[in-house]
Amino acid sequence: MMASRKSSSWTNGAIAVLRKDLQLELRNKSVLGMLLIFVLNTMFLILVTAGRGDLEPRTEAALLWIVILFTAALGLGRAFLSEKEQKTGLFLRIHAQATMVYAGKLCYSFLTILCANAVSACIFLLLLGVEVALPSLFILTLLLGTLGLAGATTLLAAIIARTTRSGILLPVLLFPLLVPLLLAAVESTYFSFVGQSFTEGGWAASSGSLLIITSFSGVVITASVLLFDYVWQD
């Protein structure tokens, strides 16, 4: 009885943190708007420089994930900086356990970056005229990749909120760590572009990459849960 009440209060706390962030985000739509404009800008840069229909499927997959990576670095870096700017960090520290805050922020990061990724993927496929042979594989890759991205970025966003010169630091810390995720995601996206059927070059060929993305997300989120307390507490 005690345990169940405890776990439900933990879930409530995490949801409260998530709801607070989402409400703040929706009340002031400037960040979401800026992310959208950023994605559009980058897509048009690619379009005018690389041209339509001249790209290899692998290059297309790589470009898509690089855009996603930059959007994530721009959008998610703010997850904890906003607490610092609004001076609400202390309040959160008093009222919520560290793991609650982490879970709430992770869900918030996941949802934000999922929206941005969905938008950028749609624009990318439309503007570059890419045909997705296996849409289900493409969507699964996008979902799993977003989870890994959010998992790695949330802890690093908490880290850079504690530094003094945080502007350029997030990409420096984040990009080399995300290389395994990015490689596997590009591989899997490539197979979703060119795969013929379930067995021929599609799901069967990308199962290894999907496994890497899943295990990477698992490792990163587990490590973050264990380490978050040390970053969060003063």
Binding site: A152, L156, I159, V219
Partner: peptide, 10 residues
């Protein structure tokens, strides 16, 4: 130290 451990697991 947190970043060091985080990097090491990846």
């Amino acid at each position: 130290a947190v970043y060091n451990i985080f990097a090491f697991v990846t």
